[in-house]
Design a protein around this nucleic acid. Structure first.
Lengths: 136, 136
DNA sequence: CAGAATCCAAGGGGATACTG
DNA sequence: CAGTATCCCCTTGGATTCTG
């Protein structure tokens, strides 16, 4: 501890170091990815079958072009999907999941299983809590 | 399809329905929880041992009081942790993980394992991608 | 000690318009 | 078809101040 630092300064420094630690943590980085709504949806869709851009955007009804493109770029960059351009007119772009991406789907399935097994328990707890603490 | 709807209107409706579907999906709801940075950190910390509020805030260096309190309330509400108040002066509040919370930690460990096994592969793919597409 | 309440800045993401 | 570029809103969360 540097005695010339104020308490606020040393707190800020601790926070910075902690943020750096978190940014470097593998499971945190993965969770940040999975937390992205569209990442899991696109990956799951491509887990079923290869798709073109337009097919994906139809399949995942709620997504905007901006988000779909951004998501696909991230997935491609991370080696989780491949992007294949066929230079016809008009161009055709096909997306497919990779082995790495497919292995990640097993993690997603783990999450899914816990959710399907326990989320109504959570739901019940939540209702009980709200009941006890006043709904309004 | 209602013919009196514009294309924009029917798109908006489709999106609403999709959002509703997502909001109801158990695994999406769980993922939304886990995606919250502090949820997993607090749960992991309490997985090691029970802690008081101040212990948690010290243990998890980067968190603000607002976020810590909010996170603990959510976890308590969902039945993942318990909150015990000892009416001394000053008051003492202890937090502990529940069985449900502990079972959720197994899911988190699954995520952690995949991350530790595959994240440098992802990192390499990413570097290769950036190399191929121009770093700047 | 363990919060609650308020204020406010930053950025994530939707809507829209345009392009090869 | 498969994107890119821009504007802009609205939520998220940190800092600060106050309390039982």
């Amino acid at each position: 501890m540097n005695p010339t630092m104020t308490a606020a300064q040393s707190r800020a420094q601790a926070k910075q170091e902690y943020d750096a630690y978190l940014a470097a943590c593998p499971s945190r980085r993965l969770l940040d990815r999975l937390s992205d709504k569209w990442i899991t949806l696109v990956l799951s869709a491509l887990g079923e079958q290869d798709m073109r851009y337009s097919e994906l955007s139809r399949r995942i009804a709620g997504v905007s072009q901006k988000m779909l493109t951004q998501t696909l770029r991230q997935l491609e960059r991370d080696g989780l999907v491949t992007r294949t351009v066929t230079p016809s007119v008009p161009v055709q772009v096909d997306y497919a999941i990779t082995g790495l991406g497919r292995s990640l789907l097993t993690v997603v399935h783990g999450i899914k299983e816990w959710a399907e097994e326990h989320m109504d328990e959570v739901e019940r707890r939540r209702a009980a809590f709200d009941e006890a603490h006043g709904t309004g």
